[in-house]
Amino acid sequence: MRRDKQISRRSLLAGAGKSVGVVCLAAVSLSAFVETAKKAQANALRPPGALPGDDFLAACVRCGLCVRACPYDTLKLATFADDAPVGTPFFIARDIPCFMCKDVPCAKACPTGALDRKTDIRQTDMGLAVLVDHENCLNYKGISCSECHRVCPIRDEAITLELQVIDKRKMLIPTVHSDKCTGCGTCEKHCVLDHAAIRVLPRELGQGSAELSRAKS
């Protein structure tokens, strides 16, 4: 009797240990997979008002209410083939940029707060436009294309044309101002080149720093 009890207690403990082990192993494996799968490509931009990084992935349930609310079909829910974690909303500026609706219907539609429904579209950070290809940008060749400046919804604030003299030639250089640019991607969409010379990048990729800490050290 007593012996039976001991054996059953031992097997109970062993069973519990096994379960805990399986759960831990599976949870670590799942976590490792999530860490890989959660990374978005730089060209996949989040809707306006999106919480930063992992906070977004903790809140977004991938319901697509923002996608349905967007009047311009900008937003999509990612499939496995897309550049964002599966099921999450994103847009590719070169395909359809964000039209910066004043009432931000996508953020208002979000039921979980993954998109801040009180977001001010002028203050939002979907990314930062960066003139990445000086070699091919027509303005750098002395041609006043200036398409990116012309189409910018925050023209003369987010993008200005700065007069510069390069090789003794006067040029109007499109210059993005990070404090005004929301990363809507209209400039990238309308760049006349085959592949856009100006692109919206996540801010941490697209922006340098005024600090000189590296030079000092």
Binding site: V23, A26, V28, L30, S31, A37, K38, A58, V86
Partner: peptide, 22 residues
């Protein structure tokens, strides 16, 4: 049930809604 617990634990570990990735 173990996988359910794993999904919850994975969510704690990664700070994301873990099971929705797969």
């Amino acid at each position: 049930v173990l996988i359910m617990l794993c999904a919850l634990l994975g969510s704690i570990f990664t700070g994301t809604i873990a099971w929705e990735m797969i």
